[in-house]
Nucleic acid binder design. Structure first.
Lengths: 198, 198, 198, 198
DNA sequence: GATGAATGAGGTTTCATTCAT
DNA sequence: TATGAATGAAACCTCATTCAT
């Protein structure tokens, strides 16, 4: 009811955002609670008023990061018509957000690594991949049904498409001068589209 | 009179292998030098006779891991004839080694994360990706030249192919029950091949 | 409403004083941060809230020790009249403080040794000797100008006087039963005074 | 009997000499047995064939250093005639050996510090000072007896003289550009001689 | 006599976390 | 809600010393 956004919520967000940056720069283990507090401009102990401990903070970041990503992609294609257009809108979002995505890559890989060791993080990632696959599969399935695409296993196709996108990001972060993400993404997706069409 | 294998080399290898396992399990920062020493069955201090410090050990692992991977892939396709067969041999290596690859995934992502923060590690990875791309591009280029594939930018195609493979591994580790790597890899690669053919 | 003495300043002083004692007993390298913490009755880690590291702590002690010594000597002679009286007051300070000086001798020689290896410590000592020489030279110069002393190079005389005092302390600490500091100091100084008079 | 100097004796000497240099550079605690072995060009473990442990090595150095110093001074004045000449010969030795003495100053102060904590080292130093004082006192006593010097307590005079010399070295090492040892020593000694004469 | 290899015992420093104010 | 002060528990790294060869 109260229109004024809760102070607590703001602080929580502040901390999560600062922590995301700090973790991306130093890694989960090398970044200290003090580094994060300094980035927010508060005292180290204050973080503990908002998060039980470092692990909980990391978990919160994982949730926000992957949920946000999902929401962004979901929104992107809602406006489009054909399956092709919707898939295109999807990866163009990535291209557009390029400069925002780059600094998050380190923390993304940290999460991929951490998720294989911590169940709560794994759950977040598994869920993200599951939902994303579902999202893409649904679009592809539509395309198949309305004759845009040749009949195929939509889930496998969805995974292939997402795999290609994820993998392309890896090439990009490790060879930024050599790889033109934009072109490379378009190229890869066209390749797959051509495979799907008929 | 086979020259008795240098004790030092053996120890070095022992340590690297044990460390790889330990790091894969706990992560670079959470794993302690003592954990590693225990895994080898030696004293903590002994590791320092073979590696200057933890970072140097991690670096040595990176080199061995990526170089080994590259060598494995390189060897795999040497025996084949057509470009298609050679590319196929390439990803079938991945499928065959599945059980060996899985436990390395955590350390692989650790490296992808760490490489974005440490120049020496970044260099190893960049080099790996570069060489791998070159390897695949050469095969594809051959295919284009002998008419197996339609004309295309071989490097972009190579990146697309590798991206798809890398990305598929990610789906696999995070949804092992849901994803049949074998089928998924074949599916994705077929998709790309179909795009390349004509 | 006297401003309540800063807790931090108090702790800092506590630590410096305890560390001085501990270092005097065990030497800079043999004394551990834990020894010092125990002497203060705090945790080892707490010291690091007040000093960046062991070296910084040692540096702080050097500054306090030599500055304090200088201040003590400076104060001592301010009240006197003739140059002779002022010089006398100076070394009588040493005699009076005998029991306080003795336990500091080990750390003093540690500093003399360390100063030849660490620039920051060397600077403190060099400055101390420089100032001390200046102090004594000024008094001697006055004595020369008002006819108390025969004309001489005041700086050389000052160094000779201080050298004799320092050297006498060495004899004293290494032969405390044999050397009566009081008598020995008086004797030496008289010798020099006799040399200066006319 | 055997004129060929024992190999063992040579090694022992080699080690002592190398260790003296290394200790002078790094201090007793910072210098490692390996540093010393490297300086000799032998293996770390070999040192233990010649010395029981690090402390024993340090002790051996102390003995050699102070005994040698004493022998040097003793020899110096043997040839002279008057007490004055003999005392003069004594400090001129110091001046002549200046370049050899300077690099030993750090280890000398280390010993002065260590001697206040380790009985075996203390004994060496106490003995050195005792003998040196005796040496000088004997000369002065002669001077008194043959009328060169006015009657005085020869031991006190000896200590004063040595104190002045030791103290002058301190000024010198900490202000080498400012202090002309040669001149300063002469000045100081003249001052004392003038006090002794009549 | 000499050494390569190994280790036990520590020492410095860091840091997540707590708590009184 | 916020924080200054403190700490327990490590972790990395070093080094004197030993010993089999």
């Amino acid at each position: 009811m109260s229109p004024k956004p809760n102070v607590t919520t703001m602080r929580t967000t502040q901390i999560i955002e600062a922590a995301t940056t700090v973790f991306a720069e130093k890694g989960f283990d090398r970044a200290t609670m003090e580094d994060i507090a300094d980035a927010v401009g508060i005292n180290k102990a204050t973080i503990y008023l908002y998060f039980d401990n470092k692990d909980a903070l990391i978990h919160a970041i994982a949730e926000r990061l992957f949920d946000q990503e999902l929401a962004g992609l979901q929104a992107a294609h809602d406006l489009q018509n054909t399956a092709m257009e919707r898939l295109t809108a999807y990866y163009e979002t990535l291209i557009t957000e390029e400069s925002e995505v780059m600094p998050l890559m380190p923390i993304l890989y940290e999460f991929y690594a951490l998720g294989l060791r911590r169940d709560d993080v794994r759950a977040v990632i598994t869920d993200f991949i599951h939902q994303l696959t579902g999202l893409l599969a649904a679009i592809i399935q539509e395309g198949v049904e309305n004759g845009e695409f040749a009949p195929t296993d939509a889930r496998q196709a969805a995974r292939a498409l997402d795999a290609l996108l994820s993998g392309t990001l890896l090439h990009w972060v490790y060879a930024p001068e050599e790889v033109d993400v934009d072109a490379q993404l378009r190229y890869g997706v066209q390749l797959i589209f051509r495979g799907l069409l008929h």
